[in-house]
C-alpha cells in the first residue's frame, strides 16, 4: 500500500470536514442546520446492512437516506402533517430498524464512525465527491443566501429557487452519507453546525464566514484524528469535541 492507513484517514477527514463546514455555513443561514441530524440517523439501517454484508458503508448510508427521504416525501403527499413531524416519524423508525438489523455489540462503528476502517476507495470517494460538492455549493452560494434573506428578491432576480434548493439538498445528502464513515450516524449534524457557528462568531463578511467554516472543519478533523492517534479514543467524538473547543474559543472573539 502506497499510503498508510493513517494518511488515508487524515486525507478523507480533511476533505469531508472542510466541505461539511462550508456547506454548513449555508445551512445555518437557511435555518436548516438541524436537518443534518435526522438525515444522519436515517442512514443507520443502510449502514447496518453494509456492515453485516461487507459492502461500502457510504453506499449503504446514501441508499438508506435516499429511501428515507422518498418515504417522507410520499407521506407528505398522503397526509397533512408537517415535514418536521414526518421526518421525526421516519427517522425514529429508521433508527429502530437499524438496531434490529445490527447487534448492539457491533453498533459502535455505525454510531460514532471508525476511521481505522477507511480504505483507498473511501478516500477517493471523499476527494471526488467532496470536490464536486464544494464546486457546486461555491457556485450557488450567493443565490442561496439571497433566497435565505428574501425568496421574493431572489425570484425577482430570476433565480430558480426550487431548482437550487433541490441541488442543495442533494449536496447535503451526499455529505451526510460521506460523514458517516468518519463521525458515525449519530454525530453527522455536528460537522455541519459547529464549524459554521464558530466561523459566524469570527466573521463580519460572507467571504470570511464561508472560508472560515471550511477551515475550522479541516482543523477540527486534523486535531481529532491526531488526538485519536495519541489517545486511542474513538476519532469521531474527538473530531466533534475539537470543533466544539474551537467554537468555545470563538465566543471570545464575538463581534
Amino acid at each position: 500500500m502506497i499510503f498508510s492507513q493513517f494518511t488515508l484517514s487524515l486525507i478523507t477527514g480533511i476533505f469531508i470536514g472542510g466541505v461539511a463546514g462550508y456547506l454548513g455555513s449555508l445551512m445555518i443561514v437557511k435555518r436548516m442546520a438541524l436537518v443534518g441530524g435526522p438525515l444522519g440517523h436515517l442512514a443507520l439501517p443502510g449502514v447496518a446492512l453494509a456492515l453485516l454484508y461487507h459492502y461500502n458503508i457510504f453506499l449503504g448510508a446514501l441508499l438508506s437516506i435516499v429511501i428515507g427521504a422518498i418515504v417522507i416525501w410520499l407521506l407528505q403527499i398522503k397526509s397533512k402533517l408537517s415535514l418536521e413531524a414526518l421526518t421525526g416519524v421516519v427517522f425514529a423508525a429508521g433508527v429502530a430498524l437499524g438496531f434490529l438489523i445490527l447487534p448492539l455489540s457491533q453498533a459502535e462503528e455505525a454510531l460514532i464512525g471508525d476511521i481505522t476502517k477507511i480504505d483507498l476507495t473511501d478516500t477517493l470517494l471523499a476527494i471526488f465527491l467532496g470536490l464536486i460538492v464544494f464546486v457546486i455549493i461555491n457556485r450557488i452560494y450567493q443565490k442561496m443566501i439571497l433566497s435565505g434573506i428574501s425568496e421574493d428578491l431572489a425570484k425577482t432576480e430570476r433565480i430558480d429557487v426550487k431548482k437550487y434548493n433541490l441541488i442543495y439538498l442533494i449536496c447535503i445528502t451526499l455529505i451526510v452519507a460521506l460523514e458517516v464513515k468518519i463521525v458515525g450516524t449519530l454525530l453527522t449534524v455536528a460537522l455541519l453546525v459547529i464549524p459554521a457557528s464558530a466561523s459566524n462568531n469570527f466573521s463580519r463578511s460572507l467571504c470570511l464566514y464561508s472560508w472560515g467554516a471550511l477551515l475550522i472543519g479541516v482543523v477540527s478533523t486534523i486535531l481529532g484524528i491526531f488526538a485519536f492517534r495519541f489517545t486511542g479514543l474513538p476519532a469521531g467524538p474527538l473530531i466533534i469535541l475539537s470543533a466544539a473547543l474551537i467554537f468555545l474559543i470563538s465566543l471570545f472573539f464575538k463581534k
Partner: peptide, 28 residues
C-alpha cells in the same frame, strides 16, 4: 429587468448573517 423593494424586509433577517452591505450588493 425589474428592481423590487418588498414591503417590510426586516433588518433582523440580515443581523443573523455575517454579511456586509458590500456582500449584499455583490449579489447583483
Amino acid at each position: 429587468k425589474f428592481g423590487y423593494l418588498p414591503e417590510r424586509l426586516s433588518r433582523s433577517e440580515f443581523k443573523k448573517i455575517p454579511i456586509s452591505v458590500r456582500d449584499f450588493y455583490k449579489f447583483k
